[in-house]
Design a protein around this nucleic acid. Structure first.
Lengths: 152, 152
DNA sequence: TTATTTTGTGAAATAATCATTCTCGATCTT
DNA sequence: AAGATCGAGAATGATTATTTCACAAAATAA
């Protein structure tokens, strides 16, 4: 863990708003020269705080209009069971994220589908057949808003 | 909605793996010239499928080691109530994402905190005091794995 | 106190890469 | 046969990442 300067935090906040910003462009916005900003960003990257960049794609416009959050409770929770479940769930293309969690559920999945009937297919033929699944709870996504978070 | 070529999908898949890839670099990986790849990416961007780029930062290394998913059920669900809740929750810096969902809960929040006691503070003084909150369920994140998804 | 190291900065320079446009040829459609 | 579509290749400025150097402030040691 590294301690962040106020300048570092401002850089991260800018990059969190627009990940396409270059080092120089981000620095310019806070009155920092190109090399200075670049050095800080490289430092943050080497420290592992900045893991990389990812694209933000609108799955709805790509034909996947349904996003569902699934809470999955396993029936048996041995170590083998967890690994089996994770391996099987990783093979489902419609699964966007797998969260191993502590609480009422064991896993939390983010699943996308073309429409509701397509989601039903995924749920019945993919999810419910996963090894060790006990109970499943579903939340259909209506709207989503990402917030910058405590640093960014 | 636009229909995607197999080449488009391969480009998106590459960009989903590494969002820092330039148009030319992505094209080169699938045997496409720089202008050809650039034109496709521009087309995808104009179509709204590619909404932009965002950074991927490791909040744990930045001192926020605890991530919790909260399921929130509202006590009263009028239109005004939803807007009040959304406005208030947007003012909490520890909230990373707000999902308006359909199902057992009304909202799903992704919250980060420095540690468990810090999370307790957020929960008691920020979340539980939100207007209209009926019930809250929490899932602590143990590990997370992002999957490419159906296209990317 | 002075001397010295450390740390972060800006300016200038570079070499590479990038986005962008143009032309031309191949392929496919009608 | 004519038109539309898509790609490669070359050429362009613009922007970028990256290095080097010198300087100022702050911390540390003498």
């Amino acid at each position: 863990m590294i301690d962040l300067d106020e300048t570092d935090r401002r850089l991260l906040r800018l990059l969190a708003e627009d990940g396409a910003l270059s080092a120089g462009a981000a620095g310019r916005k806070i009155g920092l020269s190109q090399p200075a900003a670049w050095r800080r960003i490289r430092r943050l990257t080497k420290a592992g705080i900045l893991k990389g960049r990812r694209i933000d794609l609108d799955l709805e416009k790509a034909g996947f209009g349904v996003t569902v959050f699934l809470g999955v409770k396993l029936a048996t929770k041995g170590r083998v069971s967890l690994e089996d479940f994770e391996r099987a769930v990783a093979a489902i293309p419609e699964v966007q994220a797998v969260h191993h969690v502590l609480g009422l559920y064991d896993y939390r999945l983010r699943v996308v589908a073309r429409d509701i009937s397509d989601f039903e297919r995924v749920l019945r033929r993919r999810i419910m057949t996963l090894p060790g699944v006990g109970g499943v709870e579903a939340n259909v996504l209506l709207s989503e808003e990402r917030r910058p978070g405590p640093i960014g």
